[in-house]
Computed example of a mutant assay.
Amino acid sequence: MRELHGMLGVSRRVLTGLVAAGFVTPTRGPRNAWRFTFQDAVLLRTALQLRAARIPPRKVIAALSRIREALPDELPLTGIRVSAVGNNVAVRTGPSKWDAVTGQLLLDFEVAEIKGDVVFLDYGPPRRNGERQAEDWYNLGEQLRLSDASGAEQAYRKAISLSPRPYYAAYVDLGVLLCELEARCKDALNVFDAALTHFPDDAMLHFNRAIALEDLGRFEDAERSYQRSLEIDPTHANAHHNLAILLEKRGDPQGLLRHLNAYRRLTT
Rank of each mutant, 00 (worst) to 15 (best):
T25I: 07
I232T: 04
D117Q: 10
V91S: 08
E223V: 08
P57T: 10
R45L: 09
L8T: 00
V14C: 14
A100D: 01
A62H: 02
C179M: 12
R127W: 06
D122R: 13
T37L: 04
W137E: 13
Y138W: 08
R265D: 05
P126K: 06
I211R: 10
R2A: 09
S83F: 14
M7Q: 13
E214C: 10
S163D: 12
H236Q: 05
P234S: 07
E220V: 08
S65D: 10
L140M: 12
R165D: 08
A188C: 03
R51M: 05
Y156F: 10
Y168T: 04
A239D: 04
H240P: 01
R250F: 02
V191I: 11
S225T: 01
L105Q: 07
G151S: 07
R92S: 10
T268P: 01
N261C: 09
P200A: 12
D148M: 11
L230A: 07
A62R: 10
L107F: 14
P30C: 10
A222L: 04
Y123P: 03
R224F: 03
L64G: 03
D40F: 02
L71R: 02
Q133F: 14
D193R: 15
D40H: 11
T102A: 13
T267P: 02
D99P: 07
Q104E: 11
F219M: 06
P30W: 01
D117L: 15
A159C: 10
Q227Y: 01
N190Q: 13
E248W: 11
A159E: 06
F219T: 05
N129A: 13
L196F: 06
